[in-house]
């Protein structure tokens, strides 16, 4: 140990020991990444599948949605990935993500639309809204988001696509107006996006 104590005080020992530690930790991280990468991808795929299943009625599709995707540029120029549901080869509906700015950062909503442009379901999959107030958009906290089921751009008419406070047809919840407004805007944007690209989505490859 005394030799080690002498060695430890040498100038070269410091960078060398630091370098060795850095190498060991990097190797551990690389190994950890290698060992978990496949399983993490699988777990995330399962997550995606589970949320896709939430916005589509049971038995709506007979294909693997994760393998039937297409990309279309959205209104903001960013590509949107659409998962298409098919029954006997014909596109019966599609699922994609829409987002808008809420009270505290981006709210990401996954929406399912059938081939006629009618909402099949919407789920907020990511948000940072105030717990206890804005987080009622989360289906685990409140059923509010289920209101969108069956709605379309024609019913209610476009000017009614707003919270009741703004003269629209949708409930807001006590204490939070910005959050439901943002979700509303995102969902409406998604329906408009579908309407604009309907041909492409239903017939494109």
């Amino acid at each position: 140990m005394s030799t080690l104590a002498l060695w430890r005080e040498k100038l070269g020992y410091q960078p060398l020991s630091l370098g060795i530690i850095a190498m060991i930790t990097s190797a551990a991280l690389a190994f950890g990444n290698h060992a978990t990468h496949g399983d993490i991808l699988k777990a995330e795929e399962r997550d995606l599948q589970a949320s896709l299943a939430q916005v589509l009625p049971e038995g709506f599709a007979d294909n693997d949605l994760l393998k039937d995707t297409m990309k279309i540029n959205g209104a903001d120029g960013k590509p949107v990935t659409l998962y298409r549901a098919r029954k006997a080869g014909a596109v019966t509906g599609t699922v994609f993500q829409v987002s808008s700015r809420g009270y505290a950062g981006e709210i990401v909503v996954l929406i399912g639309i059938d081939h006629e442009g009618k909402m099949l379901g919407a789920r907020v999959i990511k948000h940072q809204e105030t717990p206890g107030l804005g987080d009622k958009i989360d289906v685990a906290k409140s059923k509010w988001v289920l209101d969108f089921d069956g709605k379309s751009l024609e019913s209610p008419p476009a000017e009614k696509w707003a919270v009741k406070k703004d003269g629209g047809a949708f409930d807001q919840f006590a204490g939070a107006t910005i959050t439901p407004r943002a979700v509303m805007k995102a969902v409406k944007g998604g329906l408009e996006f579908f309407a604009a690209h309907k041909q492409e989505i239903l017939e494109g490859s």
């Binding site: 530690i21 850095a22 930790t25 551990a28 991280l29 950890g32 990444n33 060992a35 978990t36 990468h37 399983d39 993490i40 777990a43 399962r46 997550d47």
Partner: peptide, 19 residues
Amino acid sequence: GLIATMVTLVDMSLNAWFH
């Protein structure tokens, strides 16, 4: 360095095996 590595490893293994 050691602590950060450990936390990252815990993070990755939880994500993969206890999702």
